[in-house]
Computed example of a mutant assay.
Amino acid sequence: MEKILTIQNLNKVYNKRVHAVKNLSFEIHKGNVYGILGPNGSGKSTTLGIVLNVVNKTSGHYKWFDGAIQTHDALKKVGAIIERPNFYPYMTAEENLQLVCKIKNIPFAKVAEKLELVGLLERKKDKFRTYSLGMKQRLAIASALLNDPEILILDEPTNGLDPQGIRQIRDLIKIIAVQGTTILLASHLLDEVEKVCTHVVVLRKGEMLYQGSVDGMLSNEGFFEIQANNMGQLQEVVQSHTAVEKTEIVDQKLLVYLKEPLPAEALNQYLFHHQIVLSHLVKRKLSLEEQFLQLTNNH
């Protein structure tokens, strides 16, 4: 699988005190949608700033396209929106994009193609200042795609949008990905990552807590909800099982979290062997949200 971006042991320290990015390493491969997920202040924007050459790193390395070309030339193959769209308000959408084409030496023919992709072709003669926030964001995406980049980088692409605007941007990201563009987006919204990303890097206070596929994060071992007459004895016996990581009692039910696979029938048999008969047994999966909370709370 072709590597688009490789980050190795990246660090960023501000004012000798704030360690914004701590020893971060991950890879972006062609054809996937990657999410950098984390709360505000987790180092997402700093990481994007470093690889886009607008923030200086403190230490570590990163390379574009396996180091085959220098960063300056590599960035010509990257489309990025890391700040609010910055267009001329009294110019039309079409004129704004033509100006970008002039600056970047891109054929004007790309303007109509990208406006159509983002659903703004019919509004191309309207002035930018008449656009809604969602339309402005879609125009920014069109602008970032004018040079047919190999990777599109988006920092909190749905921030401040209404539900309809959010859905339009997410649908657009899926369309762009299907057409073969690799996407890297930073978000604090679990829902966003779950809906549009194939892979996720979870950050907290600059540290990476998880990296891998979204499906992999969701295919955790899950947990059991169980009940019996003597809950104290039940908890004691369950905790002695080698597959059990931890237990807690919530709403008169014992929640049993696993560190390795354990079928429901095997647990039932184990408890029966210890003279415990269950009155309630349900196996559940952790949602991405529960996974994320477990990850961030454990660190």
Rank of each mutant, 00 (worst) to 15 (best):
K22H: 07
G38W: 07
P39D: 09
G41D: 00
N105F: 01
S59H: 04
K30L: 09
V18W: 08
N96F: 02
R17Y: 08
A109L: 04
G41N: 01
T92K: 01
G49T: 09
P39F: 04
K76E: 10
K104D: 01
R17P: 00
L24G: 07
Q70A: 12
N105R: 11
K16T: 11
N86Q: 12
N23V: 11
A80I: 00
P107D: 03
G35D: 01
S59N: 07
V78E: 12
T58V: 10
V78I: 12
I103G: 00
W64M: 10
G31C: 05
A80C: 11
N32M: 07
R84C: 01
Y88E: 14
K77M: 11
P85N: 12
P107H: 03
T47A: 08
Q98W: 00
V21F: 05
N96P: 04
V54G: 08
P85M: 14
L99H: 10
P107S: 06
V13N: 14
H61V: 06
N15D: 11
F65G: 02
K22Q: 14
T46L: 10
Y88V: 15
T46R: 08
E94N: 14
G79C: 04
L99F: 15
V33Y: 05
D73F: 13
E95G: 04
E27A: 06
K104P: 00
I82N: 03
P85R: 13
G41V: 01
L37T: 07
F87S: 09
Y62F: 15
E27K: 08
Y88N: 13
V51R: 09
I106S: 01
S42Y: 00
G35V: 05
S25N: 09
Y14R: 07
P107V: 01
D66R: 03
S25C: 08
K102Q: 15
Q70P: 10
L48S: 02
N15I: 03
F65W: 11
N96H: 02
I106M: 02
R17L: 12
T92Y: 05
P85L: 11
S25R: 00
E95C: 02
P39G: 12
V78A: 08
T58H: 06
S45K: 08
A93F: 00
N53K: 10
M91Y: 13
I82E: 08
S59Y: 02
N105G: 07
V55F: 09
N40E: 10
E94Q: 15
I81Y: 07
L10R: 08
T58R: 04
N40C: 07
T58E: 06
V100T: 12
I106V: 11
V100L: 10
N40H: 07
P39L: 09
V51H: 05
D73N: 13
E27P: 02
G49A: 12
Y62Q: 00
M91P: 00
N11H: 14
P89G: 14
H29F: 14
W64A: 06
V100M: 02
A80T: 06
